[in-house]
């Protein structure tokens, strides 16, 4: 991502080992006597882990890592408890903890208006913090998501304004640039006239030069290309977007297979026989075990011979 920090691990000193053993002892005691709960145990272990990591590593390996990992595995309620209970932990960064609490509150079950409001407040607070750019981008993006998807009724105009600002101001940041994909969905998959959609397509085309991160740019091109297909738009533009997405690197097999077929079919329709042939061949070579393989083989054979 944007900033590279290298963690260098050093061996624990005798004090750290003692602290670790003490924490482990608490763990075993807690396990047997049920004196302390599961989440308190996590905090105890977090302390032990951070102490063991060595003084210079405390800044690089966050003690909240297990909580983030839980959140990344759909375990929002567990993660939220860990973030909340780490409130009194002296080593924990307050901003990180509060943002973790906010994003997990969105999916603590049952989902309540109170939780969504609390999440919005936290995200709003950090979104306004201009001094910490990366944190602010993170908070702004998910604040926009709250307006778009979690609030009832939704406030799409507020979300759109934030997404546009993120794309305009934070070129090169992959999360900020992911807003471009959201703009494509919100603006184009709307119940509007063809004329209005064409106007929006043209407006969205202007985002392309601003996008500098590979992930943000790839997803924007992928969604633009597919939108042109979905709404019967310009095949030439669709091909250009899909090729651009491919250049930035599609790593998901399902997405890659579908994109290659789309490029080949659009190419065939536009008389770009060499392009169609190249992408049919790429698909056939890589996706032998795909239900479309036989059909694509036939389509390749049916292409006119190269001059």
């Amino acid at each position: 991502m944007n900033e590279v920090r290298t963690a260098s691990f050093t061996g624990p000193n005798i004090f750290q080992v003692r602290l670790y053993l003490f924490a482990r002892g608490r763990f075993i005691a807690g396990w047997f006597f049920g004196l302390i709960g599961e989440h308190s145990l996590r905090v105890v272990l977090l302390v032990a882990t951070s102490c063991l990591a060595g003084a210079e590593n405390v800044q690089t390996v966050s003690p909240l890592r297990p909580a983030w990992q839980d959140a990344a595995h759909f375990l929002a309620t567990d993660a939220n408890k860990s973030f909340t209970q780490a409130r009194s932990h002296p080593e924990v960064n307050v901003g990180e903890r509060e943002l973790g609490e906010a994003i997990t509150l969105l999916n603590v079950q049952p989902r309540t208006a109170g939780n969504i409001l609390r999440a919005r407040e936290i995200l709003g607070k950090y979104a306004a913090e201009a001094s910490a750019e990366e944190t602010s981008i993170f908070a702004r993006y998910f604040l926009a998501r709250v307006y778009e998807a979690f609030e009832e009724p939704a406030q799409p105009e507020k979300a759109l304004a934030i997404y546009k600002e993120l794309v305009d101001r934070y070129s090169g940041d992959s999360l900020a640039e992911h807003s471009a994909s959201r703009l494509v969905f919100i603006e184009l998959y709307d119940d509007i006239s063809s004329k209005e959609r064409d106007r929006r397509f043209a407006e969205l085309e202007e985002l392309a030069p601003k996008l500098k991160s590979t992930m943000g740019r790839r997803d924007y091109h992928l969604n633009m290309g597919n939108a042109y297909i979905d709404f019967g738009g310009s095949p030439v533009k669709a091909i250009a977007h899909l090729l651009a997405a491919e250049t930035d690197g599609i790593t998901n097999r399902d997405v890659e297979a579908a994109t290659w077929i789309a490029i080949a079919e659009l190419g065939r329709g536009e008389g770009e026989i060499d392009l169609a042939r190249a992408y049919y061949r790429k698909f056939l070579a890589k996706y032998e075990r795909d239900n479309r393989h036989y059909t694509i083989q036939q389509r390749l054979e049916a292409l006119p011979l190269a001059k």
Partner: peptide, 27 residues
């Protein structure tokens, strides 16, 4: 909606290099 928490967590993990395969998972 559920993906949002996962997306946020994966983004945070990747930005702060909390795990070795964070970028791959986010991608």
């Amino acid at each position: 909606k559920r993906n949002d928490t996962q997306f946020a967590a994966l983004t945070w993990i990747a930005r702060n290099h909390l795990t070795a395969d964070a970028d791959r998972k986010l991608d």
